[in-house]
Amino acid sequence: MNLKLKIWRQENANSKGGFEEFQMKDVSVDSSFLEMLDQLNYQLEEEGKDPIHFDHDCREGICGMCSLYINGEPHGPTQTTTCQLHMRSFKDGDTIVIEPWRATAFPVVKDLVVDRTSFDNIIQAGGYISVNTGGTTSDANEILIPKEVANEAMDAATCIGCGACVAACKNASAMLFVSAKVSHLGLLPQGKVEAKKRAENMVAQMDAEGFGACTNTGACSAQCPKEISLTNIARLNREYLSAKFTSDNN
């Protein structure tokens, strides 16, 4: 298939950037979207031109490294990661517009590569259970956890931290990401101990990083490659409010 690509090019964080157009010929419908870009980069390198920089690593839809805002949708037209998007989702002759994630908290590094350190900062603010590695931790089966609860925690924990939620949200809000972590840990008995502090600190960090506010549009969940549910956001709201009004933390 033949395609026209409009791709965002930007030399570095401080330069202005703009779209550049490319014509692609003979792209296999079986190739993945990133393999199509590999093909383009191979051509560019052969011509001695700077290849397009984009983040990617596992190419199995789990590491969360790949991004790309494709034709108005993070990770493109199917609800999956860009690395799992295949060219059979497009038609011969299509024009494809590729942009980086856009958020003040995700500054562009180069071309389509953005800096998502803000997500790490949020996790560092409380996305953990405070236990040291222990040789004599109590037995794993000592605390029973209902299967339904474990499953719900797992569904939240499945978040890959790719940032598609932020990219999709008109407010560049990170609520789905934060709520997934707060839910995952808060649902489990082991994580309940510091649930209040966790919700308070992670929300404070989220705000400090410059993410927007959630206006419940649901675009995040609709675009999440791991289909993280909006109920997590409600849970975060609940946990945050109850923490703020009942915890001892001043």
Partner: peptide, 23 residues
């Protein structure tokens, strides 16, 4: 205002994965 600032640069192709009213 905060939300506008959080987006920073707008996309050239707009997203449609939510209801018109909510946006």
């Amino acid at each position: 205002m905060k939300n506008k600032k959080a987006r920073g640069v707008n996309y050239s192709v707009g997203g449609k994965s939510s209801t018109w009213a909510s946006r």
